[in-house]
């Protein structure tokens, strides 16, 4: 037992996993997020994509799009990688690791979408890519400010209350995570939804929402 300092926020510590000086932890909150990430990663592994039905406007005709097996394999690979990165981000006890997982989620999300050969979807992926790249500056900048002002990146230390984390560092962390996928950049995601492969595209949303939920816990706890 390491005695998680913030049982009144995400619930008491349930289990810890030590990787040297990096200690991942499961509280009811992080365990729920982890379980949700596991569930959708399993769904990605076992699901086949839907076949989208498109209506030909101006008549009664409709047609079903075919699924390209190569595209399917690549999207599934990226979605599983995204799921694994999300799992790490949900339970890590280190701010730097969290930012690394967040940026990996951003990269894999772009991979899931950019695989689809449609002009609108590729445009959206391009815009999303630019936003995600820009967002790495506040994301890692936030972690750097925390390290320089407190001398540690361990959440066990930062949550304790003995060190004061600057508000700007918290704001940068949230901004970075938002840039990696959350609203208000969702408007690009509406275009992404055109892409085929519901279980894989859904992983884009799952990872972004879970990441946002985790950063909220981190920021409130610090």
């Amino acid at each position: 037992m390491f005695n998680l300092p913030t049982p009144h926020i995400g619930g008491p510590e349930l289990f810890v996993l030590e990787f040297g000086d990096i200690v991942a932890y499961f509280s009811p909150y992080t365990a729920l997020l982890f379980a949700f990430a596991v569930l959708f990663t399993v769904l990605v592994i076992v699901s086949r994509p839907e076949r989208q039905v498109d209506i030909a406007f101006g008549g009664d005709a409709y047609y079903t799009k075919e699924v390209d097996p190569d595209l399917l394999r690549f999207q599934r690979f990226m979605a599983i990688a995204c799921g694994l990165a999300t799992l790490g981000a949900m339970v890590t006890g280190d701010v730097f690791n969290f930012t690394l997982f967040a940026s990996m989620i951003g990269i894999t999300n772009i991979g899931i979408v950019a695989a689809y050969r449609n002009r609108h979807v590729l445009n959206a992926a391009f815009q999303y890519g630019i936003v995600a790249m820009l967002a790495t500056v506040p994301l890692f900048g936030g972690a750097a400010i925390i390290l320089s002002s407190t001398g540690t990146l361990s959440m066990w230390e930062l949550f304790g209350g003995a060190v004061a984390v600057p508000l700007i560092a918290k704001a940068f962390l949230v901004l970075g995570v938002m840039g990696e996928g959350m609203a208000p950049f969702y408007i690009a995601k509406a275009e992404i939804t055109r892409a085929q492969g519901a279980p894989f595209i859904l992983m884009v949303h799952v990872s972004s929402l879970l990441l946002f939920l985790r950063v909220m816990e981190i920021v409130i706890s610090m």
């Binding site: 909150y29 729920l32 839907e50 989208q52 498109d54 209506i55 859904l202 949303h205 939920l213």
Partner: peptide, 28 residues
Amino acid sequence: GGSILLLFAIYLLHKIVEHGMGLSTGSP
């Protein structure tokens, strides 16, 4: 009497349900 942060998480995860339900069918 758990954490309302968990409740907030579940409310956000409901969004995934809405997405998944809509995207999984192939229907426009």
